[in-house]
């Protein structure tokens, strides 16, 4: 399911993947599943990820999630307004967590 190109983008230490918190695993899983379903081209995501990481950021999965949002917005899979509204609902504890 994870092809070579995808595998090369994943953070590895000890040759193994690393998630430090549940949301990191969810962000990772969302990218892999939506790509597998053809929602976006991996290269489009990777370019955005590389761009963010090379800006000297400090958190790999924050960049990952950010790049995934960007590529899904660009593909029209989600709308900016609905995303921000949903984020606000979670911040204000008005919605049950999905993970």
């Amino acid at each position: 399911m994870i092809d070579r190109e995808v595998a090369d983008s994943l953070p590895r230490k000890n040759g193994e993947l690393v998630f430090e918190a549940p949301w990191e695993g969810r962000a990772f899983g969302m990218a892999v599943v939506t790509h597998a379903k053809g929602v976006y081209q991996w290269g489009d995501f990777r370019d955005r990820l590389v761009e963010r990481v090379s800006e000297g950021s400090t958190h790999y999965y924050r960049d990952w999630l950010n790049a995934l949002e960007a590529v899904l917005l660009a593909r029209g899979a989600i709308e900016p307004d609905e995303l921000e509204a949903r984020v606000k609902e979670y911040k204000e504890l008005r919605r049950d967590p999905v993970f």
Partner: peptide, 13 residues
Amino acid sequence: DVEARALALESLL
């Protein structure tokens, strides 16, 4: 913030 964004994205998808 980052958790909320991950939650929002997953729930929408």
